[in-house]
């Protein structure tokens, strides 16, 4: 198996290594948009294609066309993130291969593979048979493997980025839900923007990060990212939610958490179905008391 991976950030090296083994890969190539990532990745891959540019669809189309002129791959792996899906989608359009997104597991069966993916907003798992060539977009989960040492060459791909693309990076705030052990999440049960201070305070005291459901980010603009299928997929030790109902599109981003704690005043809220600890009550009573206790030590 010749495998091409799309490396968005370094956390994916260990995850893809797991899939490299599961797929019984023999030749490993990576594609990245970042010089520094390319250097790190080259230590564990045979070949690294570096397209040194801000993400842009047209540029990636051209870069992939160029790569496919000389190289062929049996499998493409990408994160199930916005960019990962776009990368794998473009690859699929160029090569006609099949594609499965939201992948949470893989097993060999004879000459083909059995892939598990989340469907219906993460409420179900579909088991799908695929044979190469195919692309997979993977959901961050428990699978990891220590990457083997390889000595890859970095191959620069020179193609013009789409002339009209401009990139404004997210402000670095130190609040990173994707790499924290605990993520405190606010839903619409939080009534005013000022009350977000309690959520941020809890994240601060526990050394974690905070985030929100989509309505708080997209409609109220209280945050610029959210947890869920169309936002961030997280896998912390603890996900603790205040006033989150637990709709499938949101929970799909939180399912990989080790423990789920939910505070919601509605006993029928779906989030209780998937909580390790569910508190049925008013968050405005519970959250201040929790902060109080933690501050007293």
């Amino acid at each position: 198996m010749r495998i091409l991976t799309f490396i968005e950030d370094l956390s994916w090296i260990d995850i893809f290594e797991y899939f490299h083994s599961a797929l019984e890969g023999v030749e490993f190539s990576a594609f990245t948009l970042d010089k520094n990532i390319a250097v790190e990745v080259s230590k564990h891959y045979d070949k690294v294609f570096l397209y040194d540019s801000a993400f842009n669809v047209y540029g990636i189309q051209s870069a992939l066309r160029k790569i496919l002129n000389g190289d062929k791959f049996d499998v493409v792996l990408a994160p199930s993130s916005n960019k990962g899906r776009m990368f794998a989608g473009i690859y699929t359009g160029l090569t006609k291969c099949s594609i499965v997104t939201d992948v949470i597991g893989i097993e060999r069966e004879g000459k083909s593979f059995i892939v598990n993916r989340l469907v219906y907003g993460g409420t179900a798992i579909a088991t799908i048979h695929v044979s190469s060539p195919f692309s997979l977009c993977i959901v961050k989960g428990g699978y990891k493997e220590k990457p083997k040492n390889r000595f890859g060459e970095i191959i620069k791909i020179d193609v013009e980025p789409d002339s009209g693309v401009e990139f404004r990076p997210r402000e670095v705030t130190g609040n990173d839900p994707t790499s924290s052990d605990i993520v405190v999440v606010a839903g619409r049960g939080i009534k005013k923007k000022e009350d977000m201070a309690m959520i941020e305070e809890l994240a601060g005291i526990t050394g974690g990060a905070w985030s929100v459901t989509r309505p708080l980010a997209a409609d109220y603009r209280w945050a610029d990212q959210w947890i869920g299928i169309s936002g961030l997929i997280i896998s912390p030790k603890v996900y603790i939610a205040f006033g989150v109902s637990g709709q499938p599109h949101h929970m799909m981003g939180a399912r990989a958490s080790k423990y789920v704690i939910a505070v919601n005043k509605d006993p029928e809220a779906p989030i209780f179905e998937e909580a390790d600890l569910g508190i049925v009550g008013d968050l405005y009573k519970i959250l201040p008391r929790l902060l109080d206790r933690l501050k007293k030590g």
Binding site: I114, L118, V119, G122, T123, A124, I125, A126, T127, I128, H129, R255, V260, P267, F272, E273, E274, A275, D276, L277, G278, I279, V280, G281, D282, K285, I286
Partner: peptide, 18 residues
Amino acid sequence: VTSIKKYVTPRRREIIEV
């Protein structure tokens, strides 16, 4: 597709009513 099944995350589901 060979099967589709409801995804149940194994959780403790300890509930405290306040």
